[in-house]
Simulated assay, not measured.
Amino acid sequence: MIDKLHYISQKPLKGTQLDAIESVLVAGGKWIQLRVKDQPLPEVLELAIQSRKLCEQYGARLIVNDYPSIAVQAAAHGVHLGLTDMPVAEARFILGPNMIIGGTANTFEHIIHRVAEGADYIGLGPYRFTTTKQNLSPVIGLEGYRSIMEQARHAGFTIPIIAIGGIVAADIPDLIQEGLYGVAVSGSLTNQAATEKMMQAMNANLQIQTNYFNHQNRASIK
C-alpha cells in the first residue's frame, strides 16, 4: 500500500536532515523519502541507516532517492528514481521483488514508460516552481495535471500517481479532485513551527477529498 502523504527530506534552516525527518515522524509522518544530493556515498549510507532506524521507531517507511544499493544496505523499504536515474528494471534486479520502486514523471509519455517498466508508484510534477530541486522539469500546473490524469484514466492506468513540487495544504483538494492519488511535500513540512498541525491539515484534506472523489466516481458509474 502506497501512502498518500510523502515527505521528501531536506536540510532545515536550523539543524540536520535527521532533525527534519524526526520532526515529521513525531508529527505522524509515515512515508519518508530520503533525498541527499552531492554528498559522498558513505555519508549518504550512514544517513540512510540512521533514517531507517528513526522510521522503524515511529512505524514509518523509508524510501531512498536515487541509490538502490544504499536502500538495500540500509534495509530501507524502497527507492525513488528520477528521470535520469537507473532504469526500474535494473533497480529491481538489485532490490529484489518486494521492495518499493517509485519513478518520476513529467509528461503522460513518462507515465506510459513508468507503467511499462513496472514502477510501483509515480511522482508526477512539478506542480509549481520549487527551489528544492535543481534542473527542474517544466512546471505542470493544475491544467497540466487535469490533462495528464484524464489521459491516464482513458488508458486504464491504476498505478498510484503522486503530485509533487511546491505543494502546500491548500493545494490538496484541487489535486485530489483531478484524480491524483496523493501528494509529496518537502518545504511545507521542513521548516514549519507547527509541523503536527500542518500534517493534520494535509491528512484531513487528503481523506476528505479522496472520499469525495471516490463517491463521485461511484455515482458516475451507476
Score class of each variant (00 low, 15 high):
214 N>P: 02
41 L>H: 07
25 L>C: 12
148 I>C: 02
167 I>W: 08
94 I>Q: 06
41 L>Y: 10
95 L>H: 04
131 T>H: 12
191 N>H: 01
45 L>M: 12
107 T>Q: 07
139 V>H: 11
61 R>D: 08
193 A>N: 14
160 P>F: 05
95 L>N: 03
54 L>D: 11
106 N>Q: 11
99 M>Y: 13
38 D>H: 08
118 G>E: 05
22 E>N: 08
176 I>E: 06
38 D>W: 12
135 N>Y: 07
37 K>L: 00
48 A>W: 07
206 L>V: 02
190 T>F: 04
27 A>S: 15
85 D>K: 03
113 H>A: 14
23 S>G: 15
20 A>K: 00
117 E>N: 07
123 G>A: 01
211 N>Y: 11
9 S>G: 13
174 D>T: 09
210 T>V: 11
76 A>M: 03
68 P>T: 08
166 G>A: 08
46 E>R: 09
186 S>D: 09
17 Q>R: 13
30 K>P: 05
37 K>P: 04
51 S>R: 03
156 G>H: 04
67 Y>I: 06
145 Y>G: 00
140 I>G: 02
111 I>P: 00
28 G>E: 11
192 Q>R: 11
135 N>R: 04
153 R>N: 01
42 P>H: 07
84 T>D: 08
77 H>K: 03
222 K>G: 11
198 M>K: 14
182 G>P: 11
56 E>N: 15
118 G>K: 06
112 I>R: 15
80 H>R: 10
29 G>R: 09
85 D>L: 04
61 R>Y: 09
77 H>L: 00
21 I>E: 02
69 S>K: 14
153 R>E: 05
104 T>Q: 12
180 L>Y: 12
65 N>V: 14
138 P>Y: 12
5 L>R: 09
211 N>W: 10
112 I>Y: 06
6 H>A: 00
95 L>V: 10
74 A>G: 02
139 V>W: 11
59 G>P: 03
47 L>D: 06
177 Q>V: 01
126 P>W: 11
221 I>G: 05
102 G>Y: 06
133 K>H: 07
103 G>N: 05
152 A>F: 04
107 T>W: 04
120 D>F: 01
65 N>A: 04
149 M>L: 12
79 V>Q: 00
110 H>D: 15
34 L>V: 03
209 Q>W: 15
216 Q>F: 07
120 D>W: 00
4 K>V: 02
84 T>I: 02
120 D>M: 04
216 Q>Y: 01
187 G>K: 00
73 Q>N: 09
156 G>R: 00
32 I>D: 03
219 A>N: 13
143 E>L: 13
138 P>E: 11
169 A>Q: 06
216 Q>M: 15
